[in-house]
């Protein structure tokens, strides 16, 4: 009898994993463009999770994993703007709200409406956005572009460089999720 319940528990655990898709190597790029300078930071260690049964969607972004092409930019980004030693990560917790419109069993591109709470620099905001979900060969790719107004998240830009950094930065999300075994 005890074994029977253990088997039931195991089957339940396997079924709950079967609907989960995850990556820890997702990519987020942010771009600040002004007439004086274009700055791009890329983070390729983004954690992302999608539960295709209920639409639960999560992103975890380790701020220190953003990489720049210049040392000075990297230092300023971590020390002056994002204070990554104090606030090491940004998160999004929400869901895909039009789940019925997406057929995860069939390869294709689907429009995805997403809503949830984004936390950057210890400031939480409710956000809504539309992105794209690509289902192909058992993998799920999440694509989304949006803007972040730095002042909304208490990220201040020193006067000396205010003409070189855009007040709102463009963010591009590209995460390829595979099924949790």
């Amino acid at each position: 009898m005890k074994n029977f319940f253990l088997i039931l528990l195991l089957i339940g655990a396997l079924q709950s994993n079967a609907q989960m898709y995850l990556t820890k190597t997702g990519k987020i790029t942010f771009t600040s463009k002004t007439p004086l300078e274009t700055i791009e930071g890329v983070n390729k260690s983004v954690g992302s999770l999608l539960d295709i049964k209920n639409g639960r969607l999560e992103f975890i972004v380790q701020i220190k994993s953003f990489v720049f092409d210049r040392q000075l930019l990297q230092e300023h980004f971590n020390e002056n703007y994002m204070e990554s030693n104090k606030i090491p990560r940004a998160t999004f917790k929400g869901s895909v709200t039009n789940l019925a419109a997406i057929n995860f069993a069939k390869d294709g591109e689907y429009k995805a409406d997403v809503a949830g709470t984004m936390n950057i620099h210890n400031v939480s905001k409710e956000v809504k956005n539309t992105g794209k979900i690509i289902v192909k060969g058992g993998m799920i790719t999440l694509l989304c572009d949006f803007s972040v107004v730095l002042a909304d998240y208490n990220i201040s830009i020193p006067g000396a460089v205010k003409d070189k950094i855009s007040k709102d930065v463009k963010v591009a999300v590209n995460c390829v999720l595979s099924q949790v075994k």
């Binding site: 995850l22 820890k24 260690s45 999770l49 999560e58 975890i60 380790q62 994993s65």
Partner: peptide
Amino acid sequence: SFGNTVALI
């Protein structure tokens, strides 16, 4: 759900 992670750049 992510387990423990060490991120290297």
